Amino acid sequence: MKIRTAILSISLILSFLFLTNNNKVIAQSFEAGGGDVNVNANINQDLYSQLDVTPGTVEAREPAWVNIHMLTSDGNPKAGRTVVIYINGNSTGVTITQPPVSDSNGLTSGSIYSSVPGTFEVCARDTTEGINIYLLDCETLYVVPVTSPTLLSEPQYTKGLINTLAWDISGTGTYLYWIQASTSSTFSTIFAQSNWISAKAYEFHGLTDGQIYFYRVKAKNSYGAESAWSNTVYSVQDNTKPTITLLSLEGLGTNNTQVWEAQDVLTFKLRVKDNMGIASKSFWCVARDDSPQDCLNTESFGGDIWTITVKLGDLEHDSNYYLYPQYT
């Protein structure tokens, strides 16, 4: 009997997955006949090492720490590894201080800051072996603008030729401030300005009576990044007193400081004028100690004319109910 030996050739399709530098997966197939197959694979991802960014949100130019822990698959530290920090994406304005080689605990740290606000994905790669092995663990860093100060509100008119401006800021860092004064709401010309100051108030001198001034302020953090200008406030300098002219005084009759009727009413007519206009008026009697005393009965207005009535009974008197001689 003939024995036929059948030789069966088996073709093996071997598929291997390779990870490229841009983290895409490429599948390659090899057809092999009988015999051994040698496969060389390049693994370029580190699944076990860890990266942390602290703090996760910073102001422009404020540095954040990038802490890296190099670990093996079983959690042991990898010492002496050269690690490079990089940004995955647009890195415009970013400055990175690269870390030293990892220590005996597998630890190393670098830093990063950006002069441009934005969102940045911070990553790292191990270049010790002359090839790039990318840490799978990346973290997000948020860079925000320096917060603008807020100028406190100003009155419509400011007495005198000096004005003190004050402001506040919601940022938690250390800041310097630069404030400007202008006669133009667009600040096309600058009347006066400070240098960088640490106080949150500034006094402008030498202002002009009757002139409106606009004010704005900006901040600079301790790393040199500046905020946008604040809100704008304004005030008119008023260094001229209003003029008050007594036009008439009626109703005194036969009353005097010793004999008088409490219900009798004095009527004053005054002309009140000011180069800035009159925003409000207040009438007070003055006691012997120069303190104001409320004695107003009624008042009315007609243009510049101010009509006031005062009851004699509301005036200051002594224990004998005599009006003081100053009222004569």
Rank of each mutant, 00 (worst) to 15 (best):
L47D: 11
T307E: 00
T164Y: 07
Q50F: 11
T254E: 06
S182R: 01
V286P: 12
L47M: 08
L270P: 00
E121Q: 04
G110F: 00
L8S: 02
S291H: 09
D168P: 01
G89D: 08
D74F: 07
T20C: 15
N88H: 12
A225E: 13
L270V: 03
E62C: 14
T92C: 15
F214N: 03
K200D: 00
K24N: 07
V310E: 06
I7K: 02
N132Y: 07
I7A: 01
D264W: 05
K220Q: 11
T82R: 07
T97M: 08
T97N: 09
L136G: 11
N231C: 05
A287S: 08
L51I: 00
V217H: 02
F301D: 07
N221P: 02
L312E: 00
G171P: 04
L12A: 12
D52G: 12
P63D: 14
Q98V: 08
C285F: 01
Q98W: 05
S49F: 06
N231I: 09
D137C: 12
D209R: 07
D168F: 07
Y234C: 15
I68F: 13
Y322I: 05
K241R: 14
V94S: 03
T254N: 01
S248Q: 08
D103V: 05
R125G: 02
T245P: 03
C123D: 07
L135A: 14
N22C: 03
Q326F: 11
E261K: 14
Y86P: 06
K281C: 00
F214M: 07
G253L: 06
N163H: 10
Q45F: 08
T54H: 12
G160K: 09
H205Q: 13
G171L: 09
G118V: 03
V39T: 02
V146W: 00
V116C: 15
A192C: 07
F120A: 02
S248W: 03
P242L: 03
T54Q: 12
V310Y: 01
D289R: 05
T298W: 03
N239D: 11
H205N: 14
D209F: 04
P292Q: 12
N275S: 04
T307Q: 00
L176D: 07
E62Q: 15
W65E: 12
G56H: 09
T243D: 03
M1N: 12
G118P: 05
G313T: 00
E139P: 03
S248P: 06
S300V: 06
E62P: 10
P325D: 08
L323Y: 04
K159N: 08
N275A: 05
T147E: 03
T208F: 14
L246Q: 09
N195E: 06
Y213H: 04
Y202E: 03
Y177P: 00
L107F: 08
D126G: 02
K269G: 05
V286E: 11
K220R: 04
A60R: 13
V272Q: 00
L71M: 15
V94A: 04
F30K: 09
L71G: 11
D103S: 05
L247E: 06
A32V: 13
R271E: 10
D52Y: 10
N221R: 01
V122R: 00
N195P: 11
W306H: 00
R125L: 03
T108L: 10
R4S: 00
Y113W: 04
F18M: 01
